[in-house]
Design a binder for these strands. Sequence first.
DNA 1: GAACTATTTGTAAGCGCTTCCAACAAAAAT
DNA 2: ATTTTTGTTGGAAGCGCTTACAAATAGTTC
Lengths: 342, 342
Amino acid sequence: MNNEKDRVTIYQVAKAAGVSLATVSRVINKQGSVTPATRKKVEDTIASLGYRPSGLAQALATNRTTNIGVVIPSANYVYIANFLNGITDVAKEKGYSLTLFSTSHSREEALQMIEKVISSHVDGAIIFDDQLDSEDISHIASYNVPAVVIDQKVSGEKVANVLFNYDAILDQTIKRYYSRRGDKKMSFLHVHNAGRLLAHAEKKFIKAHEEMGKDYAIINCDDSYTRTYNYFCEYFKTNRKGFFIAYRDSIAAAVLNAATDSGLNVPKDVEVMSLVGTKYAHIVRPTLTTFSIDMNEVGKRAMYMLTDLLNHSLVEKTAKFDAELVRGGSTIDRSGSDPDYR
Amino acid sequence: MNNEKDRVTIYQVAKAAGVSLATVSRVINKQGSVTPATRKKVEDTIASLGYRPSGLAQALATNRTTNIGVVIPSANYVYIANFLNGITDVAKEKGYSLTLFSTSHSREEALQMIEKVISSHVDGAIIFDDQLDSEDISHIASYNVPAVVIDQKVSGEKVANVLFNYDAILDQTIKRYYSRRGDKKMSFLHVHNAGRLLAHAEKKFIKAHEEMGKDYAIINCDDSYTRTYNYFCEYFKTNRKGFFIAYRDSIAAAVLNAATDSGLNVPKDVEVMSLVGTKYAHIVRPTLTTFSIDMNEVGKRAMYMLTDLLNHSLVEKTAKFDAELVRGGSTIDRSGSDPDYR
DNA sequence: GAACTATTTGTAAGCGCTTCCAACAAAAAT
DNA sequence: ATTTTTGTTGGAAGCGCTTACAAATAGTTC
């Protein structure tokens, strides 16, 4: 064992074992034929010298890094952390490392990260960003970096897509709401820069309302629990009723708590729900109704698709995840006989 | 712009610009002297060829990767995500990338990850693991990988430490509880494999009780919100009173919700608090009392320490974070005149 | 304008590994 | 005993870059 010494190289191992570089390389890569005797000899000197192959040099020589770049807005959202977790599990199974690129919801930073991904020489990338358009992203494909793009359709030979589908369930939920006894005005919580998914849902929300000729509101709010909570505490001083749809459940939780803390009853006076559902939705009381997609599964799926892409064995280049309605106590169940509604 | 072509190398740039490799290298690294005229010429051909230096080759040649390895149990905990977020911010500021190594709370995997960190040729590492002992970790230092170790004292020339201090506040809180009107039996929620921090706190908890001659309980529970919630729903059928200390706030939230949902009053019948405090603590009702440390700050600090370590400018090799008592409504405030206790 | 210095550029040797190809030895076939 | 086949090794080039060091050019000074 060497302590505080310079890195042991394959050359030193070869010398110590009395063989050539090539032979050592063969035993560490377990390929090519080596006599059991010499293999053992080499393995022993590797162990006694404490040799570790340099991933860098290997990568340069083989043109494979076994490294995947992951582009996300920030690790600080639970749904992103879930997504990351899914990726991590599969990456470990498949022997890949992950390099994180976080864009902080800024288009500029996102572009910069894409550049970084390209020069960082990753074998592939998973891109879950909400600021770039498909042209920005297809740029990465032109540099021969296989990529799986989340929540966006980007085409290219080495690009696969994971798409979310909130449309159907959102539309259906809104229409059912009005067709039963929906007596509250619906509001959609708009968050600046929250990205495509939200923007798309917002459009659907508006469209559904216009189709039904119903009045609605768009409320601008902050992507922060505390600020949203404070805002709604103020809001509920004058507005004592409403149905709110937020992007993330932690924002919905802010509305819910503000309502409860303002002496309102959820769901009688105020109904709330969100698109993204994480553990927050289960922890609040009443629990939150969400249109949910399991982000852990999305991460896993994305990583599987990427490894298939790298092995040229990916057949279906687009995966679609349909949001499911997960009922909580924050809305009134309007299905069937409405047992909860008195 | 080249599309779908092989990587453009520095050699091609040199040739196209009619200069030598060395000159191109000088302009991309902005060092050594180059005539403005040739610089421009080179920059132009770089742009027109769409050349990007290979980080890999640079790293191999300079022996610097500008890459930091981050070892964590899992990204799926909010406090870890917060920590990661702090690291990310500083890393971006300092121009480092992050490679993630997740150990899944397994000692075996953790050891494996340490090996990976070593051969991945990172410039440094931040290690927040709960399974390894200091000997395991000091192993990494012997391979000349500068490291900042979280929540553990590891010594070595190139090792720095970030330590947490829950002892004082925990001891003080327990003793104050009994010296005022603490009438409920205290229980500590033990989670298998949750690591050092918890184990240490548990010891302190027991010690404080023995010093005061008070009865206490250790409850084994799962590191999962749902399972803990179910367990305590059962538990509260027969036990209608108690003071519970959990490790993470989401576990504490499970106890809190189970109590409320069982018709108990928090904090009158059941008091709950946790060591780690995240957004969960603010979202539940009543809010949770926690012994909190701002993990985002911990991440930032760790990364600053690491960059200083890499620049040989780190003076204080140990940083200590004291946990603060953050009062929520899940416990009865026993300071002063106990206004909430009627 | 010669002698010298400062600045800009090119040459070539690595960084630590893989891998093709040739060389050789041992086993099998004739 | 000789040729062919199979299996095991070593030599050497190359992955894309950096960086002494040498060479060449331009700029000073007397």
